[in-house]
């Protein structure tokens, strides 16, 4: 049983949980994820670890309320417990002195990206951070980013805050030389970032979070084609060479259960959804 110590709403539908899980905290590193279940009949969902506190024995994760499981998760309160968390899973990010690192984070993945950025700074890197959001209202952790990183850029899909889209990166890359690019966020964003960095020859690492069930190397649903080969995000990843990932296939695979997920959410709402949980 894993107790929720802190709950915060960072932006509409985006929530942060800090959970007591001392054994996981002891081992967790940037880039790794957990699989959690909200209750015994629930799905197993992967969430990237966003922070940890060894003294308190806690780990932190941030999620977007997009379907039944995350709606239910979002209804839990401080003091409530999660029955199952497995982790840390996946391979940790490579943290060493690269030189100048460009980090591009989108949506909820801003939180784990900053966790990694902190480690990259401590390893002696110059970190330039791009915080990407759909609209201005969904931006969070700007202050934290400014504290951790050397430079911070903000971009939104509609231009309601910062740059409109990621095209400004092309200008930035012409001006400044980067030794490495790290991208965490929606697949479409990973694809865009990889396309932008490729002509500049910047090694680009992307974190892919496909659908997972066990997350431990059993089911194979998280398969991703990288450089023409089938790889499993849970045991071989979740980080891969951004210039080698087949994003179009990944996008299609993510939509496999869209109808079922929608049905589940609608039914849940019709049956009173949140009210059942008081």
């Amino acid at each position: 049983m894993y107790k929720i110590v802190t709950k915060k709403e960072l932006a509409p539908k985006i929530k942060l949980f800090e959970v007591h899980a001392p054994e996981i905290a002891r081992k967790a590193k940037p880039g790794q994820f957990i699989i959690l279940m909200v209750h015994e009949k629930g799905e197993r969902i992967p969430l990237t670890i966003s922070d940890l506190n060894l003294e308190k024995g806690t780990i932190t994760f941030v999620f977007n309320e997009v379907g039944k499981t995350t709606f239910e998760l979002g209804l839990l309160k401080e003091g409530d417990v999660l029955p199952h968390i497995a982790g840390p899973l996946g391979n940790p990010s490579e943290i060493k002195r690269f030189g100048k690192v460009l980090c591009v984070a989108g949506g909820v993945m801003i939180a784990p990206m900053l966790f990694q950025a902190k480690a990259l700074r401590e390893a002696g890197n110059h970190v330039t951070m791009v915080l990407g959001v759909r609209i201005a209202q969904l931006l969070f952790f700007e202050d934290r980013a400014r504290k951790i990183c050397n430079e911070v850029y903000i971009a939104s899909d509609d231009g309601s805050i910062g740059y409109k889209g990621l095209d400004f990166l092309k200008t930035l890359l012409k001006k400044e030389k980067f030794d490495r690019c790290i991208a965490m966020g929606p697949v479409v964003m990973l694809k865009t970032v990889s396309e932008i960095t490729k002509p500049f020859g910047i090694p680009t690492v992307v974190t892919v979070m496909p659908v997972m069930v066990d997350g431990m190397g059993m089911c194979g649903v998280c398969r991703v084609t990288v450089a023409g080969k089938t790889r499993f995000a849970c045991v071989d990843g979740p980080e891969f060479d951004g210039h080698q990932v087949d994003y179009d296939e990944l996008l299609k695979r993510q939509k496999m259960f869209v109808n079922e997920e929608r049905f589940s959410s609608i039914l849940w709402e019709m049956l009173g959804g949140g009210k059942l949980f008081g």
Binding site: K41, G42, E43, R44, K68, T69, V213, D214, M218, C219, G220, V221, R223, T225, T230, E249, K252, R253, K255, M256, F257, E260, E261, F263, S264, L267, W268
Partner: peptide, 29 residues
């Protein structure tokens, strides 16, 4: 890697462990 192609492991884990034959009473589709 087309949609609709499962490994037997994935298919059986969904059905047996996650009880998706009882979807939507169980959440895994």
């Amino acid at each position: 890697n087309l949609g609709g192609i499962y490994s037997a492991n994935e298919f059986l884990i969904r059905v047996n462990l996650m009880k998706s034959y009882n979807f939507p009473q169980y959440d895994t589709p």
